[in-house]
Design a protein around this nucleic acid. Structure first.
Lengths: 93, 93
DNA sequence: ATAAATCAGTTTATTTTATAAACCAAATTT
DNA sequence: AAATTTGGTTTATAAAATAAACTGATTTAT
């Protein structure tokens, strides 16, 4: 049975990746609001995606406030597409 | 954010449901082999699907050996379709 | 006939995950 | 300058997935 990448098979991580696939970059606050996630949960899940090399997380400033910007990496893109392909076979979409 | 039914958002349960959606009925052994799952794991996940009313689990006999047969219920069918629809919006498929 | 191995499955224990709650430092508001 | 808000991180708790150990019946081999 084709494996579903467990890193992507998580509601919040999947939603984050889905956004990043379509958006070039997105910051922490945007991702938190769009997903109605708690900051804590989002922080943890971003770390995991980052540790896996699926996204980059850049800390910078917007004026004086900190701003954390996320982007999907090529590896992340590939993994996401493989995940979707695997899902298709599961669900025969 | 549209919720992904957590009962279906599990690798093994999803795979089981996907099979049952296409097959009218399937027994324990078939599901275990097809999914390369351990019997323990399968047993637990079938219980959950059954407790949720997504499948029926009937114990009977095939000759002298016990045989556990699973079928998807109308509620299960509906839930599965809703899950797939929700996934589509996540992944914009 | 009986001991060993297999089959079909359940129960219990362990590990992993997801999530929330508590916290921290800097910036803003009053 | 005290109180609040913002943008997060860390730690604790709850829920899930999985594996390991077990049960009870059935073959198979001796």
């Amino acid at each position: 049975m084709k494996e579903l990448d467990p890193l992507l098979h998580s509601q919040l991580r999947l939603a984050v990746m889905s956004i990043l696939m379509n958006v070039e970059e997105a910051d922490f606050v945007y991702l938190r609001e769009k997903n109605e996630a708690t900051a804590g949960n989002l922080s943890v899940q971003l770390d995991k995606l980052s540790a896996a090399g699926y996204i980059t997380v850049e800390k910078g400033f917007a004026g004086k406030k900190t701003r954390t910007v996320c982007r999907v990496t090529p590896a992340g893109r590939t993994a996401f597409e493989a995940y979707v392909a695997a899902l298709r076979t599961y669900l025969n979409l």
